[in-house]
Design a protein around this nucleic acid. Sequence first.
DNA 1: GCTTGACCTAGAGTGAACTCTAGATCGTAG
DNA 2: CTACGATCTAGAGTTCACTCTAGGTCAAGC
Lengths: 146, 146
Amino acid sequence: MDELTIGQVSERTGLSVHALRYYEREGLLVGSVSRSSGGRRRYSTFDVDWIRLCVRFRECGMPVTEIRHYAELVAAGTGNEEERLQLLRAQEARLKHELSRMTECLTVIRAKADLYAQHVTAGTAGSLWTGETPACLALEAGVQPV
Amino acid sequence: MDELTIGQVSERTGLSVHALRYYEREGLLVGSVSRSSGGRRRYSTFDVDWIRLCVRFRECGMPVTEIRHYAELVAAGTGNEEERLQLLRAQEARLKHELSRMTECLTVIRAKADLYAQHVTAGTAGSLWTGETPACLALEAGVQPV
DNA sequence: GCTTGACCTAGAGTGAACTCTAGATCGTAG
DNA sequence: CTACGATCTAGAGTTCACTCTAGGTCAAGC
């Protein structure tokens, strides 16, 4: 139970077996996965946890090359903690940036959707949608509150 | 001033001129941009606002094909507001999902970074980093609070 | 022993979203 | 009139992160 096959790890992490082999090839894992006598991969609990961390990193937009860099630092052992910290902080900063951009987008989309909802429930007779420069277009392009 | 060149629009939207032409080719703009007598694009204020909206959509992960769909609905004129609303709501839902996933990642990264920061300021003599199964590795793979 | 399904490697293919190139044209400044 | 920088089109190239293929190996059940 500390020795999972690639298929089991695929189920547990949500990555395809192809992706798991790809991650290993690309050096995203700390060292390489151990093998059975027949040459099949046997993943340890640590491996699986690490892969889950990689999935997290990827989900938040961290590029593969940077995860590899981090994995290399971890593989190198103690002594480079400052560098790991820097990497983490950099990713944290980027993520915060990204989050605020996305929140802005959400605000815009919500504003537009709410206006549409209002219009749809009010029926097509609404005066908003007639006239020379239809407010429809203003609504489309103009509503950018943030 | 209601008639900008592609270079000016590039400056104002942050998209490259290549990307602007690409967006038009791909049908992301409502109709097509008007042209000068010599065949150069002349962007109206509406065009620019619309492009900014497209940038927002792209920033929040909306695929190009879906933006095209939305643009087609807008180009088709009134009568399909429900469908536009559905598209917007779908994007809103996906965005909320994405936001919560990213917030989770941020939590994980912060937790790891804070532990590292603690270690780094405490100096390498910390007992955390010695022993048979170094806590270093536990820290790497195990810290997944969310 | 045979079948079957999960696994192996190396390497080619895919889709998305640009990005760049080549070769031509436009239009303004000198 | 000429030079030059911005623009034009069509289409090829790039990057990223996988995903798939071909041709073979391993191991459990019948």
